[in-house]
């Protein structure tokens, strides 16, 4: 399930030597294209761990469900806070669910 990068939002983490998504991807799949935007080099090799999606500081990465496995239009959006994470799930019938929990003890 490939991460899809919104080129309008992605700034290639220009202050960093490597963008954060490239730093964390356990499969060495994220890299920068010629325009300095993040890109997944091989969609089908992604494990869907969502590490890139969670760490992106500008929310430019969306984890997508391949159509062969699930239907069009669903979204799962993380918002990472200090020691917490908030997730918003929107299903194909536009049902919205929100989940918030602690990821570390304060």
């Amino acid at each position: 399930m490939p991460p899809r990068v919104n080129p309008e939002k992605c700034d290639g983490c220009n202050a960093q030597e490597e963008p954060l998504c490239e730093q964390v991807c356990p499969g060495d799949l994220m890299t920068l294209n010629e325009s300095g935007k993040a890109v997944c080099r091989e969609n089908s090799d992604c494990w869907d761990c969502m590490s890139c999606t969670k760490i992106c500081p500008v929310g430019a990465i969306e984890t997508r469900m391949p159509y062969q496995l699930g239907y069009h239009g669903a979204k799962l959006i993380p918002m990472v806070g200090t020691n917490t994470i908030t997730w918003t799930s929107i299903d194909i019938n536009k049902k919205v669910e929100r989940f918030r929990f602690k990821t570390r003890i304060d």
Binding site: M65, Y71, K75, W87, D91, I92
Partner: peptide, 8 residues
Amino acid sequence: VLFLAARG
């Protein structure tokens, strides 16, 4: 959770 959403 995204998969469940994508299956509705």
